[in-house]
Design a protein around this nucleic acid. Structure first.
Lengths: 116, 116
DNA sequence: CAATGACTTGAAGAAGTATTCAATTAGTCA
DNA sequence: TGACTAATTGAATACTTCTTCAAGTCATTG
């Protein structure tokens, strides 16, 4: 692995940094799903979804399999499901913490605003 | 909060998606640090670091305080430290899992390549 | 006060991502 | 085979984000 770890991490997070990709991963967390269903749940154009699915596929975080005329996607491993669970948990904590944080920041902001 | 949760998540991950920002957060996980020290540890230009620190500040994930002529940064809360710990743990699991995953993918790739 | 050190900001160009639409592949069914 | 649905790909345009450098702030010290 020639890539430094912190860079791998950054790439990984960047890969998660798109609303459609997040939604796909969360939906797949419930189990494998055909594209048709993702499409209905997420409500973007088919080609847009496909583009984002391609990003996830390239990252090796999901797999796809054709069954007849439909293609079904799944998380590439249990690690990924864990990750999404952890992400959800942490994010909600973060966003909850944000409220208190905002208060602290507001003090600074108004102090700064008073000068302007 | 008018922003849908999955979009907030995406923004959050995008905010993490930069090598310098990752390193800063990990260093600050050990405790507050003056810019001078971050600069020495990370080894980028001062202005580059400042730009990335500004991103983290805007996101409300770190705070800065001037003490005399030096500026010291710290994680905005314990949640952030937790997040970085979780991220590290999960990422290393993920990257470890990547090895097996690669093997599986290689099969598919060579099968596909054989047709070309 | 001028000069220096620590850090931040602004702005321009380069590089990377997203969005969109047309074209394409793959499978089904009449 | 030809028409149709499902999904993917390619490519152009529009957007963001990075990087870099010059200029700026703020405190310290000669």
């Amino acid at each position: 692995m020639a890539v430094p770890l912190y860079q791998a991490k950054a790439e990984f997070f960047r890969m998660l940094g798109h609303p459609v990709r997040i939604r796909v991963l969360e939906l797949l967390g419930e189990g494998p799903k055909p594209v048709r269903e993702l499409l209905a749940d997420i409500g973007v154009e088919a080609s847009s979804l496909s583009q984002q699915l391609a990003v996830l596929r390239r990252a090796g975080i999901v797999t796809s399999a054709r069954e007849g005329s439909t293609v079904t996607y799944a998380l590439a491993g249990p690690d990924v499901a864990d990750l999404m669970r952890a992400a959800r948990r942490i994010l909600t904590e973060m966003l909850a913490g944000q409220a208190e944080l905002l208060d602290e920041l507001r003090e600074t902001d108004t102090a700064a605003a008073a000068e302007a």
